[in-house]
Amino acid sequence: MQQSTSKRAETIARLEAAIRRREHGGRPRAASSSHRFHVEPHSLVEWLGDGDGSGVTTLALALGRTASEGQTVLVDESRVLHPPALLEIGLDLHEGLVLRPRDPREAMWAAEQSLRNPAVGLVLWPVDRLRSHQGRRAKLAVERGGGVGLLVRPWRARKEACWADQRFLVSPLPSVAASGNRRWRIEVAYRRGSVPGETFEATLNHETGRVCVVPELAAATSSRRAS
C-alpha cells in the first residue's frame, strides 16, 4: 500500500515537472532570492527608479540574474554602460552582449528579438517611453523566449498601464553606516496575486554582489486606543 502511494507521488511529481517544462520551454525554475520577494522566472518586470544614481539598474540586474539562466543582453541606447561595474554584481562579461541601438525604434526591435530568443536568459532594457502595444509585444516576446525581461523606467511611468508581470517602485536609502552596503526600498506596485503597496528593503553586499531582500518593518508608532 505504502509502495503504491509513493509510486503515485512519483508519477504526480514527474507529470508536474513535465507540465513545468512545457510551460517554460524546458528551463529549470530558478531559486528565489528570498522567501517573500523574488523576481518571477520567465516574466517581464518593470523597475521604476527615482532618477540618476538611484541604483535601480544595479538592483534590477542583481535580482534578475538570480531568476534566469543563459545569456544576458543589455540594451544600452544611451551608451553609458560601464563594464567594470558589471563584474561587481557578479555578472560574467563573457556571457554578456551589449546592444547600442541608435534610436528608440531600434532599441525596441533589438529588445524584442532578444526576449524572443530561447538562448537569452535575461534582457535589461532601460526605456523611457513605452506605448501599450510595445509593452504587450515585450510581454509576448518573454512568453515565447522564456527568459526574464527587465524594463528600467522612470518613476513617472507608474501612472501608465502595466503590461509587465511585476512592477516595482525603487527608491534608494542611505547606506548602512558600517559596511557602506547599498540599500533600497522596493514597493510592489503590481504583482499578480499580491497586494499592491507591500514594501521590502533590499541590501546589496558589495563583497559578494548578492542582494538580500526582507520585508520592510512597520514604522514604530504607538497604536491608538479608542477612548
Partner: peptide, 24 residues
C-alpha cells in the same frame, strides 16, 4: 545555434559596431 542567429540578425540590423562584448 539560436544565439548565433540572434547575434547575426542584431549585427546586420544594428551594425557590427552596435552588437558588442565588453573587454577590460
Amino acid at each position: 545555434s539560436e544565439f548565433d542567429d540572434l547575434v547575426e540578425r542584431l549585427s546586420l540590423r544594428l551594425g557590427e559596431r552596435s552588437v558588442l562584448r565588453p573587454e577590460l
